[in-house]
Amino acid sequence: MRIIATIKDVAKLAGVSVATVSRVLNKEANVLPQTKLRVQDAIAKLHYSPNLLGRNLRQGATKKILVLLNTISNPFYSQVVRGIEECAAKEHYSVMLCMTHGDPVLEQQSITLLQTKLVDGAVFLSAEQEGTALTEACRGIPVVQACEPRDGFLAASVSIDNKKAAYDAISYLIQNGHKQIAFFGASDTLSSSICRKDGYLQALSDYELTPNPDWIIEEGFSINAGVRAAKRLISCKELPDAVFCISDSCAIGAIRTLVEAGISVPGDISVMGFDNAEISKAFLPAVTTVQQPRYEIGYKAASLLLDAMRGEENRAVKITLPHEIIERNSVEKHT
């Protein structure tokens, strides 16, 4: 049976105090280089592994942060989570993902992890409860919002200006000769859904174009949602010359369905997406889209959370990062 080495064993073999071994493990600077080498050599010879749970309990920290999101099936979140993980790793924090699946009860169960100190803080990529309820549930707990800030939730947030991004997308379509533009959106439960629809309507109004209510179809963000929306559009008496989709996944489902129905994209109908997810580059035709700086959103949100966990009061901070139109092949230019 293997005997598990303790920190006292390491100290004895290295000829130093337990406190010195602790300083080496914690990567503190006040250790002589030759002493550090002796401790590291002793750790290697004894195959010593520190008891992180015990150390974290003594320090009053778990070194874990929680990331709450609706689902991992949406490819949009991959780079956001990567940004969170890489920022957190620099401070030796690990990341736990919790899916709420749109269920406020599951979200509240995850918040219990915060209330019972099983994690040190959380990043909400989406929120299911009302903002005031979340503020009360997270009182005194370090939390940050990213991507989908919830009105009334008193927590720092990082996102883009979704209304302006949608406005710029519609302006881009109009400036390239498209006047009859449909909108494939989602329900009004998410702030981004509401803002992107508002940007679509505002741009049409500013360019003195009248939206066709039959072309405003709200099925959701997914590929299947794009399929459903396109099928509803095809059944309309008249077809638009362009479609603005609330996400790249929705755009891809729409393109596939239109092409299968014998409608050329972009020859007959141009299609524009949103997010600049990896799939938008690989699809044929490659999707013209609005880029969100997904990695930067995640990284900045984690940075704000780490600040909050160090005691910095930043709940009033609202960071808006820039968006960009990415031109590819799914939009026909008529000008």
Rank of each mutant, 00 (worst) to 15 (best):
E136L: 12
E136W: 10
E136N: 09
E136M: 11
A137S: 05
R139H: 12
G140L: 02
G140V: 01
I141M: 14
I141L: 15
I141D: 02
P142T: 01
V143S: 07
V143H: 04
V143G: 05
Q145D: 04
Q145M: 13
C147K: 14
P149Y: 03
P149C: 07
R150L: 04
D151S: 06
D151L: 07
D151I: 03
G152S: 00
G152C: 02
G152D: 02
F153Q: 02
F153K: 12
L154R: 10
L154I: 14
L154D: 06
L154T: 01
A155F: 08
A155E: 06
A156Q: 08
A156C: 07
A156W: 08
S157M: 10
S157W: 12
V158W: 07
V158E: 00
V158M: 05
V158Y: 08
S159N: 12
S159Y: 05
S159G: 11
S159R: 03
N162R: 09
N162T: 07
N162P: 09
N162A: 08
K163N: 12
K163Q: 15
K163G: 11
K163F: 06
K163A: 15
A165I: 11
A166V: 10
A166Q: 13
Y167W: 15
D168L: 13
D168W: 12
D168H: 14
D168G: 10
D168E: 13
D168I: 15
A169I: 12
I170Q: 12
S171E: 07
Y172F: 15
Y172A: 06
Y172T: 08
L173W: 06
L173F: 04
I174Q: 05
I174S: 02
I174M: 05
Q175I: 03
Q175W: 06
Q175S: 09
N176A: 03
N176D: 06
N176H: 15
G177K: 11
H178R: 14
H178A: 10
H178I: 15
K179G: 13
K179A: 07
Q180R: 14
Q180L: 08
I181S: 02
I181G: 04
A182K: 03
A182N: 01
F183W: 05
F183H: 13
F184P: 08
F184V: 06
F184Q: 09
F184H: 09
G185F: 08
